Simulated scan of single mutants.
Amino acid sequence: MLVVVGSGLPRTELSDGFHVSGTKLYDSTGKAFVMRGMNHAHTWYKNDLHAAIPAIANTGANSVRIVLSNGTQWTRDDVDAVKSIISLVNDNNMIAVLEVHDATGKDDHASLDAAVNYWIDIKEAIIGKEDRVIVNIANEWHGSWSGREWADGYKQAIPKLRNAGIKNTLIVDAAGWGQQTESIAEYGTAVSEADPQRNIIFSIHMYEYAGKDAATVKANMELVLSQGLPLIIGEFGGYHQGADVDEMAVMKYGQEKGVGWLAWSWYGNSPELSYLDLAAGPSGSLTSWGNTVVNGANGIKRTSRKAGIFEMSSDFD
C-alpha cells in the first residue's frame, strides 16, 4: 500500500517502523519526522507520569524523551512500567524516546553494557513498537572527549541489541557528555556501519560547549549533516553551569535544517538548575524557558508535526 508523505516528498512504501535515509528520519508511513518536544525526568518522579504526559502533549509536542533507570543508580523501571509509559505516550499522540540515564558521564564499557542489557531485559515492551518507540541507548555515555573510545563502545553495543531482536531506531549520544560533536563527525559513519539495519540517529546535547552561540550551533549541526548522518539535539537549555546557551539558534537552525530537538526538561531540576524547568510542576504553567520552547518563533506550537501513525486517516489515498 502507498501513502502520500507530504508536499514535495516522494511516495514511499509503508515500513514497519521508524527508519533513517541519509540525514532524514522517516516514520512508518513514509513521512519525514522531525522531533519537536522535550525531556521528562520520569525515573525521579515516577508518581507524576499521568499528570506530566498529557500536559506535555498539550504543548503540541510530537515526541517526549523519557528518563529511565536500569537500577544501577536509581530505582529500576521494569518492563511493566515501560509498557505503561509507552501506552500513555501513545494515547497522547506522541512518539516515546526512551533513554537509560545510569551511564551518564561514565567511560567504562561495563556501564554501557549494563544499559544494553537493560534494553534486552525489557525488550518485550519495545519489540513490535518500532513505529512509536525510539531507543536512546545510554544518556551521555563517555564523558571523556575521546571519539575513538566512544566509537569502540558503541560498535560493540549496537550489534548486541540487534542480535537480541531489537529493531527500533537507535539514538547514540555524542561523547563528551553529549557535547563533543567531533566524535560523531569523525567516527559516526563507522558506528552507523556497525548496525546491520543502518538505523542510527546521532544526538548532540547543546549546552555551554556545543551550543554556546549561533555560529557554534550552526557549525555543529552542519558538521554532522555534512557527513550524511542523521542528527537530533537530544537536550538543550537556554543557560547552563554559569554560561549562556543560544537556544534561539538551536530552534532556528533546527527548523532550517530539519534537525529535531528535545528541550531539557519538563520540571523537577535541582534548585541550582531550576532555570531549566519548562513548567512549574508536572501539570503546571509554563516558565519563561518553557514559553520560549513552546511559543517561540521556531517553537513547538509553530513547528511540531505529528507522526504519520497519528494522522493515518488523512495520509492514505
Rank of each mutant, 00 (worst) to 15 (best):
V3W: 13
E13K: 10
L14D: 02
D16Q: 12
D16Y: 05
V20S: 08
V20A: 09
Y26P: 02
D27L: 05
A32L: 07
A32N: 13
N39A: 10
K46M: 15
L49F: 03
A55W: 03
A57I: 10
A61I: 05
R65E: 04
R65D: 04
Q73S: 09
T75S: 14
R76Y: 07
A81N: 05
V89F: 10
D91V: 05
M94N: 08
M94Q: 08
M94L: 13
A96M: 12
V97A: 11
E99Q: 06
K106L: 15
A110T: 15
A110R: 14
A110Y: 07
S111K: 09
D113P: 00
N117Q: 11
N117H: 06
Y118Q: 12
D121I: 06
D121E: 15
D121M: 12
G128S: 13
G128K: 06
I134R: 01
V135K: 01
I137A: 12
N139D: 12
W141S: 13
G143R: 07
G143C: 08
W145F: 06
E149V: 10
W150F: 15
K155L: 11
K155G: 06
A157P: 07
A157E: 09
I158V: 15
P159D: 14
P159W: 07
K160A: 13
L161M: 15
I166P: 01
A174Y: 01
W177V: 14
Q180D: 15
T181R: 08
S183R: 04
A185T: 12
Y187L: 10
Y187F: 13
A190S: 15
E193F: 00
P196I: 07
R198P: 00
A210I: 07
G211I: 02
A214P: 00
A215T: 08
A215R: 07
A215W: 02
K218E: 11
V224A: 14
I233T: 08
I233R: 02
E235S: 03
E235C: 05
G237R: 02
G237Y: 00
H240F: 15
H240L: 06
G242C: 05
A243E: 15
D246K: 01
M248H: 14
M248F: 10
A249H: 00
V250H: 04
M251D: 04
G260M: 05
W266K: 01
E272K: 06
A280E: 15
N291P: 00
V294D: 12
N295D: 11
I300T: 03
G308E: 04
M312G: 09
